[in-house]
């Protein structure tokens, strides 16, 4: 059950990121006059992602679900901010923020995927996970194109922010289910012991 919520929440994440990603590249290219400047924006993203991963690592097992929520909320904030950006330095700042979110999301999803599966029985679950997140991203990117054609790229950013918010809600829902399970488990243990 929790695996389904993980898949749901992360399909929403790939939906949100998938709809913006290819167009985001165009958006960034328009900001920079040179390709190297545009490369730099991505380097900043990887630097913050790599650095923060080392701080997150020891906390991952304990806080992975919270990290997923924080990641989605952070991405939501970045999506809401992008249409208002008027300088390259702010783009770099947002790249920094998105790098942090990326580390939280990538690390937690892998950790939870491992937690929710058992060795020797992971193939089907990972297959499911990959299928749904990829299909979500595919649908998102086609619909994103239509959305920009009919409205504007800014609307796409806002729409993506909304989907990130939904993904945060789905993780929260998963966390709640986990806690419910834990308390049932605890009660069972208690009654057995008692």
């Amino acid at each position: 059950m929790n695996l389904s919520w993980l898949i749901r929440s992360q399909s929403l994440v790939t939906l949100a990121s998938g709809m913006i990603y290819p167009y985001y590249l165009l958006f960034l290219k328009n900001l920079g006059n040179s390709y190297s400047k545009y490369g730099l924006a991505f380097a900043v993203f990887t630097i913050s992602s790599a650095l923060v991963s080392q701080w997150l690592a020891p906390r991952l097992d304990r806080y992975s679900q919270r990290m997923l929520i924080a990641s989605s909320m952070g991405m939501m904030a970045a999506m809401l901010a992008f249409p208002w950006v008027m300088s390259y330095s702010v783009v770099l700042l947002l790249q920094l923020l998105m790098g942090i979110c990326n580390a939280m999301q990538k690390m937690s999803e892998r950790q939870l995927l491992a937690d929710y599966t058992i060795p020797g029985g992971r193939g089907a679950a990972i297959g499911n996970y990959h299928f749904w997140t990829t299909v979500a991203s595919g649908i998102a990117v086609v619909l994103g194109g239509y959305l920009i054609d009919w409205l504007t790229i800014n609307v796409l950013f806002y729409f993506s922010a909304l989907v990130y918010a939904a993904s945060a809600w789905a993780v929260w829902r998963m966390q709640k289910a986990d806690r419910g399970k834990e308390s049932v488990q605890a009660q069972k243990t208690k009654s057995v012991n008692g």
């Binding site: 299928f131 749904w132 299909v135 595919g138 649908i139 086609v142 619909l143 194109g145």
Partner: peptide, 13 residues
Amino acid sequence: IAITLLIALSVIT
């Protein structure tokens, strides 16, 4: 259903 939808969307586009 999901993959058919995605393929249909792509073909239409």
